[in-house]
Design a protein around this nucleic acid. Structure first.
Lengths: 128, 128
DNA sequence: GTGACAATCAACCTTTCGGTTGAATATAGG
DNA sequence: CCTATATTCAACCGAAAGGTTGATTGTCAC
């Protein structure tokens, strides 16, 4: 039975005690999400896959800066990048959000959104 | 009609364009969650309210460091702190996770599905 | 009051973050 | 081939993060 989420948390704490420099994937995920530019990029990619230059266009910062942000999102698994020709296409990878989402579910009276039911819902939607 | 989640994302992007130093609450929430020590603290508080010293006990870092982490969690609204006598009690405030959770729900693999149905689904889940 | 305990403050250090600029590396197209 | 475009690399910068230590404040307990 049990609460795998809780166990995971305890493990995480235990890891800390031993000063493992090994960074939890959740570190990277949440850190990636903590920047508003990166969240905006994710929102843009929700609509469509985009080239790096096109991603950068709405922002007033340099292309290199956006390129770095994309690298961070990519390392967090939140997007994937595929080079076709000289253009690198960026694609949202929403499944990476799942672990973080599941972790958060551990804290909530707002388990309002039951993930199993959620997935069932998605499947039924997609099969139409 | 209406996709409030998506609109919110667009607003966020718009804000960026104007270099507002005004930090989105989501920045603070996700940044707070990106540190493993702080996530471990949240997990501990999930079991019970605790005094600062007791929170610090399992960790090998200084009390001052833990105190700083608790301040960050507090500013993010993820915990509340109440001083009774010389002891400051820390209490989990899981509702602060809700906004972040809702934001994340916007990213399903499901650009295919229609957002109205998604919201209807969420409402029905919440009303149970 | 005195001493022990709870917690924060203040100053400091090192590393990471988010940004810049300018040069470098592909690749596409005429 | 040559040139324009797409993207990254490299070096640098200031600011913020995460930690330390030592002093400080406040409260309880005798």
């Amino acid at each position: 039975m049990g609460q795998p989420i809780l166990n995971q948390m305890v493990d995480e704490q235990h890891q800390l005690r031993h000063t493992k420099p090994m960074s939890d994937p959740l570190d990277i995920t949440f850190a990636a999400l903590s920047d508003p530019t990166r969240r905006a990029i994710l929102a843009m990619l929700l609509e469509d896959d985009m080239a790096v230059t096109d991603v950068a266009e709405p922002f007033k910062m340099s292309l290199a800066a956006i390129s770095k942000h994309l690298t961070i999102l990519s390392r967090a698994g939140l997007i994937s990048q595929e080079k076709r020709g000289r253009v690198k296409w960026c694609k949202l990878e929403p499944s990476a959000l799942k672990d973080a989402s599941v972790w958060m579910q551990g804290f909530g009276q707002f388990e309002a959104i039951n993930l199993d039911a959620f997935e069932t819902f998605l499947k039924s939607e997609l099969s139409q």
